[in-house]
Nucleic acid binder design. Structure first.
Lengths: 108, 108
DNA sequence: TGCTTAATTAAGATTAAGCTTAATTATTAG
DNA sequence: CTAATAATTAAGCTTAATCTTAATTAAGCA
């Protein structure tokens, strides 16, 4: 269970949020923060080790994207504590559906 | 967003797992680990600050139980990264329903 | 009352996380 | 080939996390 450890850091959570919008190069991510490029690179190492992010090369750029594997790991942990979590997940799922329906009504 | 930080530690994750089965006193939790009582007490402080655990007194015992608030915070974060996560949540939700149905068939 | 049990807070040591600058690798452009 | 760009790895520093033992609080019981 590395993925929850990876998401403990606020900078790494922000990286995941940015990548959930769209893929970005390491350099683009650096511009979004006030810390050095090596610091971002190290955070990406952690996210990669946790299976949350995948990196592919495009010339001298490194394109970062979110990876399903790390999310599955969190899902699996949620299942183990399911007795308590499941009701909450049901509620969340309903909220998501309601929001989706609302969004679809606005832009069908 | 303290709850993801609280769940970064493996001991605290285990505490949450144990409490998802049933409420336990601080002393019962201590017996489940190889670390000192003060260490467990400190972990419970973190979980309490994150809103994941509630503590109520019963005489000289302190009964620990899981709290909905911390889980809601994680749910909210999942919503912010929803674009990517929602499909995963749908899948997880289906799995949970399938397992529930199976369990209900065994013991109706 | 005083003694025991349950749990906490306090203080200090050790380890690990996260940041920096400097050096290194690899790719593109002149 | 050389210089510039993109990103990484390496080394070292600082702060924060986690554990320990010792001291403290509070409740139950002879």
């Amino acid at each position: 269970m590395h993925s929850l450890e990876a998401l403990a850091d606020p900078t790494r959570r922000r990286i995941v949020e940015l990548l959930s919008e769209r893929e970005r190069t390491a350099g683009e991510l650096v511009e979004s923060f006030d810390i050095s490029a090596p610091a971002i690179s190290q955070h990406l190492n952690v996210l990669r080790a946790a299976g949350l992010v995948s990196t592919r090369a495009d010339g001298q750029r490194r394109i970062q994207s979110l990876n399903r594997a790390g999310l599955d790991e969190i899902g699996r942990w949620l299942e183990t504590t399911r007795a308590f979590w499941s009701r909450r997940l049901d509620t969340l799922e309903r909220e998501l559906r309601a929001e989706d329906a609302k969004a679809r009504r606005k832009s069908p």
